[in-house]
Amino acid sequence: MSAYDFRLCETALTALPSGALYWAEQGVLVVSDLHLGKSERIARRSGVLLPPYEVTETLSRLDADIATTAPRLVICLGDSFDDLKAADLAEDHALWLTRLMAGRRWVWIEGNHDPGPVDLGGEHRTELTLGPLTFRHIALLGATGEVSGHYHPKMRVAGQSRRCFLLDGARLILPAFGTYTGGLSSDSIAFSGLMEEGAIAILTGRKALPVPIPKDTP
């Protein structure tokens, strides 16, 4: 099995190698930081014209995860769009999303890049609580049973840098799912106060691989 099963607050969850989270018992698929429309936004703002294929690439990976898990609910954990203007997707991409949304509940959690509702259907929330778990964009200090995104964590092991989940007893932070997204090294300061002692990272790639997070250097 290339996915990684674990428990958070007594809840059985699965980290998929793609960077999506699957909660099989409830039929929930969670992805974070899709940053759809990033190349369009960069073009609009700076004139730099990146290869305009990242929406297609991101949606095809999301499509694949939805096809394998057939979720009842999809939660996009914020920064789904690179900004609110970018939510104005090209027609074929909008249709593609509509097709993915058909027949299931779909929740857009708002993020710092997309702080308002979008015209694409689905529900729009600042956060969502399901049983013991709370889904929000940016982790809150002291929260438990929290699933969030925002930081785009990544980690370097054996010379290879991979996007990763970060997991401790209280929270899970998801990697960015969008194609054109960078990452923040998981041992960087942003997490040192956030993650408990003994936290692990789950690397994405061909296989979801758990590894310990190196301790802060004195």
Partner: peptide, 8 residues
């Protein structure tokens, strides 16, 4: 991949 898995 094998190197990465073994290290992990």
């Amino acid at each position: 991949d094998r190197l990465l898995e073994e290290t992990a």
